[in-house]
Write a protein that binds this DNA or RNA. Sequence first.
DNA 1: TAAAGTAGCGAGAACGTTACCGAAAACCAC
DNA 2: GTGGTTTTCGGTAACGTTCTCGCTACTTTA
Lengths: 337, 337
Amino acid sequence: MRRHYITIKDIARELAISVSTVSRALRDAYDVNPKTREKVLAKAMELNYKPNFNAIGLVQSQSHHIGVLMPAITNYYFSTVFTGIEQVANANGYNLIVFITNDSAEREQAILQDLSLSSLDGLLVSVSSQADSYAHFEELIRNGIPVVFFDRVADAVLTSKVMQDDYHGAYEATQHLIDQGYRRIAHLAGPAGLTFTQKRRKGYEDALTDSGLPVRSDWVIHSGFSQECGFEDVARLWTLAEKPDALFAVNDRKAIGAMLALKERKVQIGKEVGVIGFTNDPMSQIISPTLTTVAEPAFEIGKLSCELLLKHMTRKKVEAQEVILPAKLIIRESTRR
Amino acid sequence: MRRHYITIKDIARELAISVSTVSRALRDAYDVNPKTREKVLAKAMELNYKPNFNAIGLVQSQSHHIGVLMPAITNYYFSTVFTGIEQVANANGYNLIVFITNDSAEREQAILQDLSLSSLDGLLVSVSSQADSYAHFEELIRNGIPVVFFDRVADAVLTSKVMQDDYHGAYEATQHLIDQGYRRIAHLAGPAGLTFTQKRRKGYEDALTDSGLPVRSDWVIHSGFSQECGFEDVARLWTLAEKPDALFAVNDRKAIGAMLALKERKVQIGKEVGVIGFTNDPMSQIISPTLTTVAEPAFEIGKLSCELLLKHMTRKKVEAQEVILPAKLIIRESTRR
DNA sequence: TAAAGTAGCGAGAACGTTACCGAAAACCAC
DNA sequence: GTGGTTTTCGGTAACGTTCTCGCTACTTTA
């Protein structure tokens, strides 16, 4: 079970110098003769020395690990955010430890419960949609482990957050539908508890109100994020006496589910019923008609979250900030009459 | 920078017992009075004690971390495999450290070069398509860190591998096209260096040969995995004097790129030209006509890879095995005449 | 030439935990 | 009671590294 690798002791012994000197030579050049430094480096290379991060972490009480806690990774948005995170983390010499909650609050709690404080220097989080308590995050922060939220943020926790402009994105999307002449606009919303669900709903409602259109609660359906949810939401809407003539979905997967339901009902998408999504998932360009959507800067959000976290980790005191990146309306066929 | 947390010393002091006893009480019950064990556990709970994994890792020379090295995570296949890995790793108390190579051989080398032997107990790998040297993997294994390959395996390295049945999947796909009456079947292949590219090509060629059809090298195009590659491959094929009447793509993204190119040329997919992919990416059900494909058991591959790795990690000597999971043909509209 | 400064290095403790071994205490059988 | 087990516990070294301090030897300054 136990393995033995090359350590600085081995280098010290072979070079007949002390471990202290080897340690210094390998890190910074101060207090060490350039010549001995050369020798140490050469010997380290020769023996293929690799530092033991457990030992370093122990003595410095840090791990060089950043945790990433997300509901899932099997979708365009999260996997793209993650790629952004990875790029920054890697460039700064940090490793990423990934935790997937499957959108379950219990799982999220369990992960945070098990989480040893010593194993992480910082944590990036997108909360599960059922999460009800954020005490664990606050405890983490209290213990000196910075937490940065992205996308699905916990409003109550005082720390930095990175997200897209959900409100204005939703407003623009709804406005676009209105501009295209749609008047009976329904909203396929996300789980009610999430902040961004609320923001997108607010943007939708304000756009309607600003154009003098009524906000009808029976045209707003809260459900999950999956394609199936979108499909079922349409089924429910189509039982109503007065059916909508446009759908604004909280994300592309739901919009696509809705489109499939509409196709099944032989409804002409765009012409009869406009559909608009949110995310700019590659699927939105594949489906036909192509889906109008609000593009989220997923990669940028990942990069920025990680950069912010690094700031919190390295600097003494960085005050919490909320970064809101612009979302961009992309007009395609599904809202073209 | 330095943080101090609750340690077993604190527990020992408060209970006026030794650290050895606390340590034993916290782990297994042997050699410790059930009563004192109770007290220790209660006190640990009270103080919210969390073990320091750096210290444990140092003394046991292990990290409880498993590395996952992949070309990307922003696609259906890899993110699903990863989810399978995550499930098994988590259930066994291991954390996952993710490395993304972006399909670059240099990046892969750099990651492996930096990789401290002490920071990983095992490694799961899907090699980059440009990888030319597998020396690093062999060194890892020599140093007692088990490596298991999945999907994109390194044939030369003697260790366990998990993959789908590329050969038979490709054979079946091609056979299906033949059965449907297509006769001039082209293959949009992957990067030539990868093992599974070769296997799928072989399956394609054998199916043709077995049906007495000629294998035409100008109908086999090797390029990348992206949608754009599929698009461009069709552009090239359509400059030929004799055009194919069916396309077998190495994956769904390429198949979809090809379909878009065909649509642009007003070619009726299915009726005029059959298209078949590989993966069963959700996109294949979204595009119209829906795409016939060969489903890969991505989640299962992830689970199995991790389970195999755990076996290698815990048991003294487990001999390397190659696991090949069945791939399943899923017939949809794109091959229906 | 003596005092003062500086560059380079080493000794030893510390980080939090486990592993090993020995000792004390409790129990048991006769 | 006595001797021998068994149970329970504590002391100490070790894991690989950094960090602090102090020492030596050389260089500079007056």
